[in-house]
Nucleic acid binder design. Structure first.
Lengths: 341, 341
DNA sequence: GTTGCGCTTGCAAACGATTGCAGCACCCGC
DNA sequence: GCGGGTGCTGCAATCGTTTGCAAGCGCAAC
């Protein structure tokens, strides 16, 4: 049989009452039982290979030692490292994550979250950009702690961990400005998702800080973070202003699209146009040329989010702080001084 | 409150006994209760927004509607599509996967699997190459259904879904042979993991089928599926036999290492040496040159594994069949006729 | 008019753990 | 010698659901 050894078996062997066994086994309540008795119980439990049944425990305590992790799509290379960070940290604390993919579909998102709530998850970590606000209300009303990733709430009512997108873009802009570029384009992401929006704002700020003008024709918005949209947006910029010598993309995939667009236009990178990406995806250093990109500490995002959640799970009301993680610019072959052809 | 509505509340509203509610709500037992009563119960449940508590149900039924998914490392791009396949299929059947990463560490593997067993998972899907046999014994002894992925048991005692590695390598070999190559090298993977082993055997078979000799110097074994090992192994082959015009690698990352090694030797691909990879990782088509690779139906692996497990969960003893999935060769720029320089 | 059967439904005991409450033994101080 | 702690442990209820058993009812058969 699987685990026929229950708390009652241990009690019988240790010759005490099951209640006592429960107390002796729990760190929290061990002090309530005689040291010697506790030792006897522990020995018995060990001998029998006793494993507490989390289901039964959860029924009584209303805790499942489980947390829901909501992400758009696991196959997006951005997420696995984050998930691992979450998983490792939560696992160390005795929690098991339940991972669901929403594909950014509000319906899927809703049903998944409801299922998780029914499963009595002790908390939620949501890494989805467009989170239904009513879901938040529900979770909050149910007293389920929530941590946001890569997205924050305007009113700061929920703790969140995000990377400093504006700072990241600033790094990118400062880099190409430092190389001597002046006509700099921006392939921006969709403005209805928070990262796309913040990165675009960051671009405006950084350009202004560098004392450079932004011609509206230098900016093009992609409808999605895909190569084809990146290509389209890049072509659009080149159409408006063929003299741009550098392009800051909101995302590596958009940057890859820029590569395509440049190639189609007969331009080469970095000789004619420098390109900077964002995220530093795995194997992005294998592109030709290797892409200069803003690295986000993905694993750290995960561990930090997990820490925030654990803090909330520990004492009821940990401060709903918002954590900004520092990005880092990884310089590779896709950026060079202008006119280096 | 979270879900204060229990089966008792429904019973009160519908004016029946909780037991009756339970029967009415369960598809299986609905026939036991009067049609009209059942309708009343359903209406009441709907009105109250009743959500059954899986924890309580699991306690009584010894089912958690949860399955454990054991993989080496989620950040390895091979796995996310498989996991999604599993997740989507299991989710549709009402099961939730618990995902753990072992990093191929037997200790982690053991503790994770034990934790999952304690959590009463209804089944296990293991995608890990070196699975501790005692774990299998334990799971089997506990009556926990198990499905293997990318790995099978010699005695065929557990259902498994794997891609036809030998066939995949045969596709690769036939391709380069068709292009006119005769001196073909093999950067093989570690032989203590099943995929590495089978792919190497596949290479030997395919070469023999093509009527070609395999000089021992044409084969080099990597200690791990990494770029650096691929590079080392490739250099070793080139050292033994500089005249090889094509290399079949056991894996895309090894193939990427081959790129490095060729570049270091001043050789170009595909002009001097053609290279074929295996797995068709995301973005591998973005390499320079785009890598010809054997595509494995990753998502399908996941869905098939889930189906196999669901079959076992349905009726106690479904046949322990072993399923071989068909790979497909994706021809890109890294392969060309020999001497095309 | 019994008997017996089929159809529903209520009853209560589980499942395995946690926990408030009470009781017991013991010791201390007066 | 007795009252009042203190320290430990047993008792039993409880969490929300499932399920074997039995009881109630109506109806048909004899």
């Amino acid at each position: 049989m699987r685990t026929p050894v229950t708390i009652r078996d241990v009690a019988r062997l240790a010759e005490v009452h099951p209640g006592t066994v429960s107390r002796a086994l729990n760190e929290q309540t061990r002090m309530l039982v005689n040291e010697e008795t506790a030792a006897r119980v522990l020995r018995a439990a060990d001998e029998l290979g006793y494993r507490p049944n989390p289901i039964a425990r959860g029924l009584k305590t209303n805790r499942s030692y489980t947390v829901g992790v909501v992400i758009p799509d696991l196959t997006n290379p951005l997420f696995p490292p984050i998930v691992r960070g979450i998983e490792d940290r939560l696992g160390a604390a005795g929690y098991t994550p339940l991972i669901v993919n929403t594909d950014n579909d509000p319906g899927r998102e809703r049903s998944h979250v409801e299922a998780m709530l029914a499963r009595q998850v002790d908390g939620l970590i949501a890494a989805t950009a467009r989170l239904d606000v009513s879901l938040l209300a529900e979770a909050a009303a149910g007293g389920t702690p929530l941590v946001l990733v890569n997205r924050s709430l305007e009113d700061g009512s929920a703790p969140a961990v995000t990377v400093d997108d504006r700072r990241g873009i600033a790094l990118a802009v400062e880099h190409v400005v430092g190389l001597g570029h002046r006509l700099i384009g921006n392939v921006a992401g969709p403005q209805n998702v928070s990262t796309g929006h913040r990165r675009h704002l960051g671009f405006e700020d950084a350009m202004q800080a560098a004392g450079l003008e932004i011609d509206p024709g230098h900016v093009s918005f992609a409808d999605a973070f895909t190569e084809s949209e990146g290509s389209r947006a890049c072509a659009e910029i080149l159409g408006h202003e063929p003299r741009v010598t550098a392009i800051v993309a909101a995302n590596d995939r958009l940057a890859m699209g820029c590569y395509d667009s440049l190639a189609a236009a007969g331009l080469s990178c970095p000789e004619d146009v420098s390109i900077v990406g964002f995220n530093d995806m795995p194997f992005i250093d294998r592109l030709q040329p290797p892409l200069t990109s803003v690295r986000v500490p993905q694993r750290e995002i995960g561990t930090t989010a997990a820490d925030l959640l654990l803090a909330q799970l520990g004492d009821g009301d940990a401060p709903a702080q918002e954590i900004l993680l520092e990005p880092e610019l990884i310089v590779r072959g896709s950026t060079a001084p202008p006119g280096s052809a």
